[in-house]
């Protein structure tokens, strides 16, 4: 086996210890610029292992750009990205691929391959990266689809035949196919009805606990922030301001104040205080 990859339990110890160990993601002086427009600059951010970090910010503050930069789809104009202590930009191709298998990404609308069924979509990373027996591949596929709460008849369907919520679940199943340690979610609850959104939050929370995942989640959904995020990074003034929800609630910055104390922010706060997300299990 590759010895460069830290053992899984080590990752979990790190998760419990939190600070002091190598963070899952470490951004230093990150800058993204398109032409003369600077999206963010000198952005520092640490995501600890095993935590759920929400990323919020107004439109155009670069939430999606940040996510794409971390997973390596955008090249930062300056600064460094470190994932599990490694700098993806410096790795050779095999090391880079090995690192990539430890990451999972859920794109906004699932980004399922439209010519493949849901089950085949989940199998793509399995077949690409591992030499497993056919029956094991099928077992794992079934398992993942069941874990994300897709009904049994969805596996043989094509993405175009699914509703938005089911596409997201299928996308999540594909993102989880290789049992990654770190997953990125781009607006996981956007476009879902409130009930499905709350179920999706619970699902992510459950999976995060049982698989001890680290989650970086771009979201606009205040309920999600209250429900599952350990810490929140707010993109304001081209930087990231990180804190727990309680800290951010006290933050005097006008945008942050407006965000958390606006009518929607208050409603979400009340809902969270009353334990009102959804007591039932994701089905």
């Amino acid at each position: 086996m590759d010895t460069t990859e830290p053992a899984r339990d080590e990752a979990e110890n790190d998760a419990r210890n939190g600070e002091g160990s190598v963070p899952a993601i470490r951004l230093r002086e990150l800058e993204a610029r398109f032409g003369r427009r600077t999206i963010f600059q000198d952005l520092d951010l640490d995501v600890r292992r095993g935590e759920v970090m929400g990323v919020v910010g107004g439109s155009g503050t670069g939430k999606s750009v940040l996510l794409r930069t971390i997973v390596g789809l955008n090249r930062p104009t300056a600064g460094t990205v470190e994932i599990f202590g490694e700098t993806p930009a410096d790795l050779d191709q095999t090391a880079r691929r090995r690192l990539d298998t430890r990451l999972g990404v859920l794109f906004q609308d699932g980004a399922l391959f439209s010519s493949l069924t849901v089950a085949q979509n989940v199998q793509v990373p399995l077949r690409e990266n591992l030499a497993l027996s056919e029956s094991l591949i099928e077992d794992i596929t079934r398992l993942k689809l069941a874990m994300v709460g897709l009904p049994g008849d969805a596996a043989a369907k094509y993405p175009s035949e699914l509703s938005g919520g089911m596409r997201k679940r299928a996308g999540l199943a594909r993102a989880l196919a290789l049992d990654p340690e770190l997953i990125f979610l781009d607006e996981p609850t956007a476009g879902l009805d409130p009930i499905s959104a709350a179920e999706f939050d619970i699902l992510i929370g459950d999976l995060q606990r049982s698989l001890s995942l680290t989650v970086l989640m771009v979201t606009h959904d205040l309920d999600s922030l209250y429900a599952i995020c350990d810490r929140i990074a707010v993109l304001v003034d081209k930087r990231a301001r990180v804190g727990t929800l309680e800290e951010l609630l006290r933050d005097p910055h006008p945008w942050i104040h407006a965000y958390f104390h606006g009518p929607r922010g208050r409603a979400a706060e009340v809902a969270a205080r009353d334990g009102g997300t959804l007591p039932t299990e994701a089905s």
């Binding site: 069924t117 079934r142 398992l143 069941a146 049994g152 596996a155 043989a156």
Partner: peptide, 12 residues
């Protein structure tokens, strides 16, 4: 909880 469910993975 999730395992052992029988379902078709491919369209018939």
């Amino acid at each position: 909880e999730s395992g052992g469910r029988r379902q078709h993975l491919l369209p018939p």
